[in-house]
Design a protein around this nucleic acid. Structure first.
Lengths: 188, 188, 188, 188
DNA sequence: GATGAATGAGTGTTCATTCAT
DNA sequence: TATGAATGAACACTCATTCAT
């Protein structure tokens, strides 16, 4: 693994566990087993390390999101897939997901608005994914007649909650979550 | 308003918006319109300002939580009340609620474990509140036969999500949330 | 002497002998016998220390310049006075005068243009002082008919040269300089 | 142009405009369009770049100085030639002359004393050139009976002043300067 | 209760320089 | 010749905190 990769791995872990302001460049360099100036050889500063990590995490996230199967038996299956998808992500890449759900650092210098653009884009895509499922499912009679916009927002909250799941629950709540959603959406 | 109150108000706001590490004692003193040494007259340091704020927020939170009506027509009504309660809280005290849902600062010196004790206590109380409702509702036939423990955890996630609601949704999602929960819990 | 005065004295000396970029804040603090952060308590940074020193030197310089006698027997006497004045200055305040004749530091952050405004003002005032003397002296027949503007510029160069005099010559060249000027200006 | 020449040209310009301490090796390499390590292939370090530039500038300067015509109609003509010479130099090689009149960098590592040896040599030569002219001119009755040593020093100051001339005056002051000197030196 | 002055320990960053190729 | 990667030492500056009053 290259030293640059070391830096990213170390920084991702520290930012995820201690936050942006709570992490020092010294800590990153020690955890990455490099000297501090090397951080500045590869990046313009701490802010750019953070934003570049965030950008690549979102790139990966969006790319995986796109690969979710588009054809499914039912519309509910698509929503189920989205939940499963996030349950998998938080098991595979907990640090990365911690950064995705983290608040924007109050003092981050982010001239390209990497944080807010990606964060908004994520919410927009998930919302449109969910809204589309709900609308079609309601039209086809598969779902009860719920208010599409509001329900999509509530489901978005649940997706967010899944990414916040502590280690105790990561492996256990998937089935129950799907069941709860099924009961609340499927037309009786 | 006393200067000590000014300090608390300023610190609460800054900690909520910028985080613990992202907020300096200088910023607190400026926003509170006092000098920095005064912070140290009233508190032993930045860590104690934070923990003392957190303690008083949780005290207030628990006290209000206790006042939720214990006798209701239905068991679902109790769950509905808990949702309403949190919708109200986040409108009335957004800074305080932001601190309640915030991650523990990585470098907080918290010998009395104010953060983790209160945070765990909150989750335990909410979980037992929800579990109790669910169990009784299932026994009485009001609720479908769901797994109590898991369902309580999912509802906990939703409560958490309510406290994270941005200003756009704070006022709008209450009814839809109740409806979604009703459909998913009430026995058909 | 207050610590703030110590800082100014030390910084003036170091900037004069080593230049702005060649002087570190550590050196200033050591020479002033204070800790480094105290520099930042009294000033916003190294740049402000420099510009504030420069501003106060120019203030002193202009104030002394104004006190030069306005009524003299001859117009040459006024030019003589200006030379004497600068010979005295460089003996009394060598560090301060070294800063006045120093080039603008290439990387000085000087949003108020303290350097260039004062430097230009100094040149303008000296030039107008000299031009006025020359013009009147020529009109009265005291001076030979020289080109006023160019001659004033050359005299300005000589004033500048006086301020650059090394310790060997500081005390010796006054009379010879006056004599040279007398021969070159007084009408035969 | 070779890369080594590029380095010298870039460094000369940057040292002249920003000073030694105010110029970084990175800036030199960027302006010279080479990589930083190449500086260290050709030179032992930043200090040697500076001293080697200075040495070659003085070599050029002394070589041109030697070529000044030794036989002239009058002794004043020789002094006039020296002035013209410096007026030409500052137009042709402003960066190089800026380095010649610059103060010795406070933190320059200069074991061969390139700076002080050349600087002193320059002053000694000019002084002896001027003293010799004055002495002979006085003996021949061409010049008034001025004190040779002091007057030579004053003329040295003026030569120095010529090299400090800003762009506004570079082209204009030659004639007036000669005239002023003529009036002050030529016996009446 | 309140503050102006002061500081030890760090913070992010840059510097001139070197190494491996 | 030439460079991408790397570093020890220093840099300007900030931090939470304390002291004297």
């Amino acid at each position: 693994m290259s030293k640059k990769d070391n830096i990213i791995k170390a920084a991702t872990h520290l930012f995820a566990t201690q936050g942006f302001e709570g992490t020092t460049t010294k800590e990153i360099s020690v955890e990455a087993d490099v000297t501090e100036p090397l951080l500045y050889y590869h990046y313009s500063g701490k802010d750019e390390i953070y934003t570049s990590i965030l950008a690549s995490i979102y790139k990966e996230y969006f790319s995986r999101l796109k690969e979710l199967p588009k054809k499914t038996d039912t519309h509910f299956k698509k929503i189920e897939n989205l939940c499963k998808f996030h349950f998998q992500l938080i098991k595979k890449m907990p640090d990365e997901m911690a950064l995705i759900i983290s608040k924007e650092p109050g003092k981050l210098d982010d001239p390209g608005n990497v944080y807010s653009k990606n964060s908004q884009s994520k919410n927009r895509r998930l919302k449109s994914y969910l809204s589309s499922c709900l609308k079609k499912g309601i039209q086809s009679g598969e779902f009860a007649k719920v208010s599409v916009n509001e329900t999509a927002s509530i489901l978005l909250i649940m997706i967010d909650g899944i990414l916040r799941l502590g280690p105790d629950w990561k492996n256990k709540l998937l089935d129950s979550t799907i069941e709860l959603l099924r009961r609340s959406l499927i037309a009786k």
